[in-house]
């Protein structure tokens, strides 16, 4: 016959295991001021490290998030906050950056033309979206005149 102690032990163990599988989510809202994005980026950096991503992969995530935040700040047209949301699951880190900027057509963003770059340089803008796509495993972009959300996934 099962003792009460064993029964309680099992149920506690099971519930603890369940909670270990639960996603952990946090949100940080920042004003569109360049430099302030370092705060949510630092939080995501710690989260990615705790999840077990290698140092190089953490840097990739940090760099992709930096580009997404900077784009949101640059193209903000009001003082509306930019929201950074991170969701950690046992094997997946999802980081989302949402702004209320004027939006853009993600399909119109062209891949870098390195032949031209070698001849005349970059001159304006950067490679933000290209960088993000190259640094994380999956990217989703939703954009409308009301704002843009960039969702980045890194898989363990």
């Amino acid at each position: 016959m099962e003792s009460i102690g064993e029964s309680i032990g099992e149920s506690i163990g099971e519930s603890m295991l369940e909670s270990l599988e639960e996603p952990v989510t946090f949100r940080i809202a920042i004003p569109p001021i360049e430099g302030v994005e370092d705060v949510p980026i630092a939080a995501v950096q710690v989260l990615a490290s705790k999840m077990g991503f290698s140092e190089d992969r953490v840097q990739d995530i940090v760099q992709a998030l930096t580009e997404a935040c900077v784009n949101s700040i640059l193209y903000s047209v009001s003082d509306a906050d930019i929201e950074v949301m991170a969701k950690a699951e046992p094997k997946v880190l999802m980081v989302e950056v949402s702004d209320r900027g004027p939006g853009f057509d993600p399909d119109s963003v062209q891949s870098p033309d390195f032949e031209t770059m070698v001849e005349i340089g970059v001159k304006s803008g950067g490679f933000g979206i290209h960088m993000i796509k190259a640094l994380v495993d999956k990217v989703e972009i939703e954009s409308s005149p009301e704002g843009t959300t960039i969702r980045m996934y890194a898989f363990l």
Binding site: E67, V70, G121, V122, G125, H130
Partner: peptide, 15 residues
């Protein structure tokens, strides 16, 4: 810290 625009500036200098 580096952003792509900063790297772009270095590319322009190199060219």
């Amino acid at each position: 810290k580096i952003v792509s625009r900063g790297v772009g500036a270095a590319i322009d200098m190199a060219v």
